[in-house]
């Protein structure tokens, strides 16, 4: 059965888009057909990690929501762009959000029919024969994001070891529970390397009564990569890559 996974955080800059791209790539490397949707319509970005240039986007999620195309027409095969072999059985298909300022303003201005999001996800899974669909969300608990969570079989909730993140994450965990999300995993990102990671994991698990799939360090390599590519392909032996693989195992189990 296909799985919808949303990647979320209460605050921005937490590592959602980087994690989405890395998890999608690892799943594709395992031979899976993976869809990625950028539902962060107000501040899109995951296309950058997949090296999809704005002028290469023939259609976007915006076009679909305006009725200008079918959802599958907005899906771009980025498998090779990201650096995987053309012969790869696993594939990554990205549905980007438009980065044109006028398109973003139009969505903010007019809103859109949220039923289309739900229909679109299902149609994409069916037509593209996806094993998994990963949703990169807008931070916070806005309507669209809540709908993404409500539609998901699993959620990866990312937080940094920061008091603001701690409080906000508690809100999200509570709401996600009200929406009966079948699986919820936490991931702590950008942890100072001076911390004891086991302690961080225990503390967070106890605070939210929720499994912590991984504790990732703040990494200079990740910072220097600066979203210009997918970390797990650039550093296949790095501990962060191992941790992401571990997260994939738990998301798919």
């Amino acid at each position: 059965m296909s799985k919808i996974i949303s990647v979320h955080s209460f605050r921005g800059g937490t590592g959602k888009s980087n994690s989405t791209a890395n998890l999608a790539t690892l799943m594709a490397a395992r031979g899976m057909r993976v869809g990625v949707i950028d539902t962060d319509i107000q501040s899109p970005g995951v296309h950058v990690l997949f090296r999809l240039e704005p002028d290469e986007m023939h259609h976007t999620l915006n076009d679909y929501l305006w009725g200008n195309c079918n959802i599958e027409q907005a899906a771009h095969d980025v498998t090779e762009k990201v650096g995987m072999p053309a012969s790869s059985k696993g594939r990554v298909f990205l549905v980007p959000s438009s980065v044109k300022s006028r398109d973003i303003v139009r969505i903010l201005r007019e809103g859109y029919d949220m039923g289309l999001l739900n229909d679109g996800f299902q149609r994409l899974i069916e037509l593209m024969k996806l094993d998994v669909l990963i949703i990169d969300t807008h931070p916070g608990v806005g309507e669209e994001t809540l709908l993404s969570i409500a539609m998901s079989d699993a959620m990866l909730l990312i937080l940094r070891p920061d008091q603001q993140d701690f409080q906000g994450t508690a809100v999200t965990v509570e709401v996600a529970r009200q929406l009966d999300i079948p699986k919820m995993l936490l991931m702590v990102n950008k942890t100072p390397t001076s911390y004891d990671f086991k302690d961080v994991q225990k503390l967070v698990e106890r605070s939210y009564d929720c499994t912590v799939a991984a504790v990732l360090p703040h990494s200079d390599e990740m910072m220097t990569l600066a979203s210009s590519g997918v970390f797990v392909l650039r550093y296949p032996k790095h501990t962060i890559t191992q941790s992401y693989n571990h997260v994939v195992d738990q998301l798919l189990s």
């Binding site: 969505i107 903010l108 201005r109 007019e110 809103g111 859109y112 029919d113 949220m114 039923g115 739900n118 806005g142 309507e143 669209e144 709908l147």
Partner: peptide, 16 residues
């Protein structure tokens, strides 16, 4: 199917 209200919370006149 669940019927969703239109997304976009900012529908006030000022926002428009």
């Amino acid at each position: 199917r669940v019927r969703y209200a239109r997304a976009g919370r900012n529908t006030g006149e000022l926002w428009q």
